[in-house]
Amino acid sequence: MDLSKRINTDLSEDELIVQLKKGNVDSFEFIVREYGGYLLIIAKRYLTSEADAQDAVQDTYLHVFSAIVTFEGRSSLKSWLHRIVINISLMKIRSNKRRLVELIDDNASFFDANGKRIETETEITLSLEKLMADDSQREYIKTQITQLPQMAKNLLLLKDIEGYSTKEIAELLDISLPSVKTGLHRARLLLKKKIEHQLR
C-alpha cells in the first residue's frame, strides 16, 4: 500500500496536520489527492475556464504548503482549503470586475410612478423536490447561474450557495456593503428573469 493511502486510513485529521506542519511529503500528496477534485469544482463555479480553475487549485496548494504552519485548526482542513480556493479564484477575476449597475435594467421598470409594483406574479407551485429530481431542469438552472455576468455570479455564489454574510462578501470582493446588497438583489432578479419560465 502506498503511503498516501496509509495516511488516509491511519491518521486522524489532527495527526495529518502535524505531519503537514513537519513537511511530510506524502501527507501533502494525500491532501492534494483527497481534496483537489473538490477544490477544482469550487474553483470552476467562479472561473469559466478549466485552465484558470486548475491554476487556482494549484495556487491554493502552494499557499497551503507555505501557510500550513500558521493553521490553528479553528475550522476543518477542508473548510480552510475551501476558503482559500474561493479567495484565490476571486483574486483571479478581480480585474474583470463589472459595474454593478450593469447587472439588470433600471429598477424603475418594475414599479409605477407611485412606487407600486406593476406586475403581479403568480406563486410558484412546483415543489423543490420535484424540480431537483429532474436532471435536465437542474442542469439548465445551474447553467443559468454559472453564466450570469461575473459580478452577479460571484454575489449569488458567495451569499446563496456558500452562505457568507454580506459584510464578509464586501471584504472578499473589496466593494462597499450597500453595493453588495444592491448587487445581490439585482443578481437574484437577473436569475429570476432567466429561469422563471422553467418554474411554471
Partner: peptide, 20 residues
C-alpha cells in the same frame, strides 16, 4: 403582490442552494 413576490424570491434562493 409583494407577498407572492417575496415567497417566490425566497423559493429561488432555496433553489440556488439546492442546485449546488
Amino acid at each position: 403582490a409583494c407577498r407572492v413576490y417575496l415567497k417566490n424570491y425566497e423559493y429561488r434562493i432555496q433553489l440556488s442552494k439546492s442546485i449546488f
